[in-house]
Design a binder for these strands. Structure first.
Lengths: 345, 345
DNA sequence: GTGAACAATGCATGCGTATTCATCATGTGC
DNA sequence: GCACATGATGAATACGCATGCATTGTTCAC
């Protein structure tokens, strides 16, 4: 049996309801001029025929697809899985569809953008992925707004929303200092993105303001994943001659978790007794019993709000907002990987 | 500045290249009859105009969108995040787009399906979500194939691919028995799906074959999440009078992990010394140092292959395969939450 | 009671592309 | 050199819906 296509069209419905095709279209278009009675007749006929309006066809005339593209660059980090979930929920509530693209960490998103353009999406949200200026202008030229989530590209036309990562880095530094740490290590991630670099910058700046020498701050780069940080931590502490730092900043929660497990299960160290650790993001996984991770919470909901407001999906005639960089402050969440100093109790 | 739409069409390209619109269309359609020279001219013109074919428009005539819908019912379980990622990668490689819908756990997917139908997707993959027979026939009527992933609905027209959950449950039972367990507990999940029930059935069946009495098998239902299992475990062991089982089967890995953390961090029990635990799925998170979870591996890649093969995306004229239930065997992965008996070493 | 404003409706057209059909040029085998 | 197959091309049309425009019927104010 062949895959027969029984899709009825607005003409079929119109015929059955005894109205014109225009009436059918209007019946399904909120706010258009149609009598309640007519609408009922149309709905009745539509129900009988299992009619569902063809959004593809309507997009052709309205030039709006109600599709938003979400490009995710690091699905292995649960933070981005949560972000994806949150965006998806939010956009669904608004009656929009989400076209998803996954991109390998570190890879650029040009190919994904190209597909996105073909599908005439109403907007693009880009998360943890690289973006070339060529693609930015390709999008902007055709009136497709694009917002970087948790990332910005200095000097670029693309707008971005992010946590104030530098300020967050400072919060971590302060927490360590308050807990009495004197020598420090960082496990950093993707060097291409601004996220990791900003966190490092704020962290180091604040430490130096407190009189810590740069030589007392060790930095190791790991792949931006649990395993990457696990291995980086092993490398960091394998050298027995080097004196061990008091405090370790994992540049995000999943990496902090990887580092903690390496410390505890491979190196026999206690956290926080032997070494305090902090992360960044506040993913739900970090709250669990084995970790109880002290971290900076990214205000995801605010960031999503901001992203959508810059996209102006409701108002296509609004110009594209270019070059915006909107940092939003996160706050420190005390848990158990840094001993809580009396003044923070 | 208003959001100007500079999108050039195949006519613009045709004019610049000095050919007809048909030629442009053919230039971008693999396998169509066009001279290499003409194609080059077209590409050249297209490049100059930043032309990108409008897939929406082309879908209107071809009746194919190259979009596949993925409906995910439980994003909180990392297993499904991994599944989503794997499908997305695979479909992208094939040049298809993924439209994603997230549905609350336990909720039915009717609304999502309705949206999917509007967008004329080429196929639907449904994961951890309910599906009404009405929606199944809505899809089938219009020639849209639909496959349930890791779920089946007995007597339904919808096809499904899944792990052989009952057989997997038996494997777990055998592992516990081989390790010498004599009394058992299960923390089960969503009672609406077949997945949890099948695992339980296989597990119990095998135990009873080994002479275990039903009264020595306790069953607690938890919400299908880390937290749900954490709480269920607390409830299970709070009753001090009840004798403690030797072995606990968490119906999937994330729940097993929640249970383990409750046991270790709240109840002061050691795993596996005081109590052995097994999960199901083999998510990467379960391999990590704190858990080292013994589990049954779901053959995700095979399952994805099977799903796509049933969908017949490459051959739209192929009839829809109805009512298929394709179980694929998983295998037991020994790690450290069950003491490995000598015969399995 | 009259003209104007307005709501409801249908007709016709356009959105950007794929595809059918007819035409023409070119090459093939004999 | 001829009949024929083959490949390349353009004109025209269809895909399913939204919308501008014209028309009709209705209500309202005066």
């Amino acid at each position: 049996m062949t895959r027969s296509t029984n899709r009825s069209t607005s003409f079929d419905v119109a015929a059955l309801a005894g109205v014109s095709q225009s009436a059918v279209s209007r019946a399904f278009t909120p706010g258009s001029s149609i009598a309640e009675e007519t609408r009922k007749k149309v709905y009745e006929a539509a129900r009988k025929l299992n009619y569902v309006p063809n959004s593809i066809a309507s997009s052709l005339t309205t030039k709006r697809t109600n599709i938003v593209a979400l490009i995710v660059g690091n699905m292995a980090n649960p933070f981005y899985a949560h972000v994806l979930h949150a965006f998806s929920k939010k956009l669904q509530e608004q009656g929009r569809q989400v076209l998803i693209f996954t991109v390998d960490p570190g890879a650029d998103s040009d190919e994904a953008i190209l597909h996105v353009l073909k599908y005439q999406v109403d907007g693009v949200i880009l998360t943890a992925a690289q973006l070339s200026t060529r693609m930015t202008s390709m999008c902007h030229d055709r009136g497709i707004p694009i917002v970087l989530f948790n990332r910005y590209i200095p000097g670029s036309d693309a707008s971005g929303v992010r946590c104030d990562n530098a300020a967050g880095g400072r919060l971590i530094a302060e927490a360590f200092l308050a807990a009495g740490a004197q020598s420090f290590a960082m496990i950093t991630g993707d060097p291409k993105g601004t996220t990791s670099k900003d966190r490092v910058r704020g962290f180091v700046e604040r430490l130096q303001e407190a009189g810590i020498r740069r030589s007392d701050i060790v930095e190791v780069e790991g792949q931006s994943s649990y395993e990457g940080a696990f291995n980086a931590a092993m490398g960091l502490f394998r050298d027995k001659n080097r004196s061990r730092p008091d405090a370790l900043f994992g540049i995000n929660d999943i990496m902090a978790m990887g580092a903690i497990d390496a410390l505890r299960y491979r190196l026999g160290l206690r956290v926080p007794e032997d070494l305090m650790v902090a992360g960044f993001d506040d993913i739900p996984e970090g709250r669990r019993a084995p970790y109880q991770l002290t971290t900076v919470r990214q205000p995801i909901n605010q960031m999503i709000e901001a992203t959508l407001s810059i996209l102006h999906l409701d108002d296509p005639s609004h110009g594209i907002e270019r070059g915006i960089d909107r940092p939003i402050s996160g706050r420190l969440i005390w848990r158990n990987t840094i001993p809580v100093p009396p003044e923070y109790r």
